[in-house]
Amino acid sequence: MRPARALIDLAALRHNYRLARARHGASALAVIKANAYGHGAVRCARALAAEADGFAVAFLDEALELRAAGITQPILLLEGVFDAVELADAARHDVWLAVHHEAQLRMIETTPLAAPLHAWLKVNSGMNRAGFVGPAVATAWQRLQASGKVRETTLMTHFARADEPQAITTAEQIERFDAATRGLNGARSLANSAAILGWPQACRDWARPGILLYGADPMPGEANGLQAVMTLESAVMAVREIEPGQALGYGGRFVAERRTRVGLVAMGYADGYPRSVPDGTQVAVDGQPSRLIGRVSMDMLTVDLSDLPAAGIGSRIELWGRQVPVNDVAAAAGTIAYELLCNVKRVRLDYRE
């Protein structure tokens, strides 16, 4: 069996959820959209089911997959619904939904429903992607109440720069949200992962932890006690030596400056490891630090074994996980941990409790 795999530590997932809930101090929806950021939505939901206050996904199909798997906790659709058929299905399966533009609001007013909804009214406090602005928030809230189809309304917003602790943007967004929702009944939800960790004034009734659940700290330079949930790993499948001046791999990007012992690893960009990482990107070989050399290809990559004489065929390679932080690999690739985790594919997911 090909040794490439993503090892998913469900105990670490529960640890991170508990940390988020404790830091927030109130209820928390575990965000498991995009197949739980590449970790497997159903397995992650089941691992959290005994203690999570609920879950959040992007769209209805993701919610229905969880319902079919026996998940009975509240599930929020962060994108809301796209047509009246989806709206009726959401009501039938007791799925909560965001309402963030006029067409969704009008859909609720005009669609017959089997059961009343729990609506999450989205406030645009400055991110300017979605949501109602200023006085339109109160108008939308009143229309939801008047529709007779909404049993509860939660007021929510989303932050653009909560992971930048020195920026004033988040404080300004909180002020705008509070001004737009003043006098309106309903729970409040402001805090994403970064706000849970860095903006206590954003912690209200409901938090929405996402990336922190999976152990990638969204606050730069801070030690928040998160545990890596995914370890992306493989093994050396072949070894060769190249001489000084010889090039390695596609494009000949890496040229040996000394006799170099090269380990060929069963992992490539088709598995989700980014092609854009440069030579020198950190890996761990049997727990020892080493580096990637040569360009990542579709199915394989190459690592430097020159200073690890005991390493050879079968040696374990950690691409990211407990020893190699996924944030560091993402920075080397010029992207963010969210993208790397969501792009994991083709490798098998192995779960441990």
Rank of each mutant, 00 (worst) to 15 (best):
residue 259 R to Y: 02
residue 134 G to Y: 05
residue 175 E to N: 07
residue 93 H to K: 09
residue 343 N to C: 06
residue 300 M to C: 10
residue 185 N to Q: 14
residue 329 V to M: 08
residue 194 A to M: 09
residue 43 R to L: 12
residue 330 A to R: 00
residue 296 V to F: 03
residue 247 A to R: 04
residue 12 A to E: 04
residue 49 A to L: 10
residue 143 R to V: 04
residue 27 S to V: 07
residue 332 A to D: 15
residue 140 A to R: 02
residue 88 A to N: 01
residue 14 R to Q: 10
residue 122 K to I: 09
residue 95 V to P: 00
residue 21 R to I: 13
residue 127 M to H: 11
residue 95 V to I: 15
residue 11 A to H: 12
residue 27 S to R: 11
residue 18 R to M: 10
residue 56 A to R: 02
residue 162 A to K: 02
residue 159 F to M: 10
residue 288 Q to T: 07
residue 353 E to F: 12
residue 141 W to Q: 03
residue 279 D to P: 00
residue 94 D to G: 08
residue 184 L to W: 00
residue 66 L to C: 11
residue 172 E to R: 13
residue 274 P to V: 10
residue 280 G to Q: 10
residue 228 A to D: 10
residue 304 D to W: 06
residue 1 M to V: 15
residue 254 F to A: 02
residue 329 V to E: 03
residue 102 E to R: 14
residue 323 Q to Y: 09
residue 234 S to K: 04
residue 122 K to C: 07
residue 120 W to G: 04
residue 188 R to F: 09
residue 258 R to N: 06
residue 309 P to M: 10
residue 96 W to C: 08
residue 175 E to C: 07
residue 103 A to N: 10
residue 344 V to P: 01
residue 89 D to K: 14
residue 56 A to P: 06
residue 95 V to T: 07
residue 167 A to Y: 12
residue 282 Q to L: 14
residue 235 A to H: 03
residue 249 G to I: 05
residue 176 R to W: 11
residue 323 Q to D: 14
residue 230 M to H: 07
residue 8 I to C: 05
residue 73 Q to T: 09
residue 114 A to Y: 06
residue 133 V to R: 13
residue 269 Y to F: 15
residue 30 A to S: 06
residue 327 N to V: 09
residue 54 G to V: 12
residue 57 V to H: 05
residue 92 R to V: 13
residue 142 Q to R: 15
residue 127 M to E: 12
residue 144 L to I: 01
residue 342 C to M: 14
residue 136 A to C: 14
residue 171 A to N: 13
residue 172 E to A: 09
residue 191 A to Q: 04
residue 270 A to P: 03
residue 231 T to H: 07
residue 326 V to M: 03
residue 33 K to I: 02
residue 219 M to I: 14
residue 163 D to L: 04
residue 204 R to T: 04
residue 106 R to A: 15
residue 1 M to T: 15
residue 152 E to H: 08
residue 58 A to Y: 12
residue 19 L to V: 15
residue 42 V to A: 13
residue 67 R to G: 07
residue 100 H to V: 11
residue 228 A to V: 13
residue 291 R to E: 14
residue 76 L to M: 13
residue 144 L to H: 02
residue 326 V to F: 03
residue 121 L to D: 06
residue 261 R to T: 06
residue 194 A to F: 07
residue 197 L to T: 02
residue 300 M to S: 09
residue 286 D to P: 08
residue 189 S to P: 08
residue 75 I to L: 09
residue 352 R to T: 15
residue 295 R to W: 00
residue 338 Y to I: 14
residue 101 H to E: 12
residue 227 Q to A: 13
residue 321 G to N: 02
residue 21 R to G: 14
residue 123 V to M: 07
residue 343 N to M: 10
residue 220 P to V: 03
residue 300 M to Y: 12
residue 138 A to Q: 08
residue 70 G to Y: 14
residue 334 G to A: 12
residue 285 V to Q: 04
residue 146 A to H: 12
residue 191 A to W: 01
residue 170 T to D: 04
residue 184 L to Y: 01
residue 159 F to K: 04
residue 16 N to G: 06
residue 248 L to D: 00
residue 279 D to Y: 11
residue 13 L to T: 03
